[in-house]
């Protein structure tokens, strides 16, 4: 969950709430996923407001938009390094940024700076828990 700045949250495993857009990530294969998104629409407001949310979601999230396509190319570049290497030479993706300044909050949450990879680590920690039953 991102609190500092416009709110973003990932609800494990594949629901993403980004400002006023809702996205679902659907894994297809180890090398492919589909990212579906739509705009939040509010009851009881002027349609001009909802139309603005639709336009913002369109501009940010779609395949011709200004945010997700750049992310998608970055993900493709990372992915291209993965399956083509033998497992022994694949190395690691380092997600340690900010690990030294992570602190535990009152509700058991981990907190760090907005640019740290606390959320990424949280995702994979939960993934391991679900897939193996390990809690470490």
């Amino acid at each position: 969950m991102l609190w500092d700045g416009p709110p973003h949250a990932l609800v494990f495993p594949n629901l993403f709430l980004g400002e006023m857009s809702v996205a679902i990530i659907e894994p297809v294969s180890p090398a492919e996923m589909v990212h579906r998104h739509t705009a939040v629409q509010l009851d009881g407001v002027d349609d001009a407001f909802n139309a603005r949310l639709r336009r913002q979601s369109e501009a940010a999230m779609g395949p011709a938009g200004f945010i997700v396509p750049d992310d998608a190319v970055t993900a493709e570049r990372i992915q291209s390094a993965m399956p083509t290497q033998p497992a022994s030479e694949r190395g690691w993706i380092d997600m340690s940024r900010g690990v030294e300044r992570e602190v535990s909050g009152e509700a058991g949450q981990r907190q760090a700076l907005v640019s740290d990879e606390t959320t990424n680590r949280g995702f994979w920690r939960q993934y391991r828990r679900v897939m193996t039953g390990e809690t470490a």
């Binding site: 705009a39 336009r55 369109e58 779609g62 011709a64 396509p69 750049d70 190319v73 970055t74």
Partner: peptide, 27 residues
């Protein structure tokens, strides 16, 4: 009324072109 892949009026198209011209769009 709906969500499109592209739905640019002139101002939004100008923004799109400005963005593309920066040469900094990874996409």
């Amino acid at each position: 009324d709906s969500l499109s892949y592209v739905n640019d009026n002139r101002a939004r198209l100008a923004t799109r072109m400005r963005q593309l011209r920066t040469g900094k769009r990874h996409a």
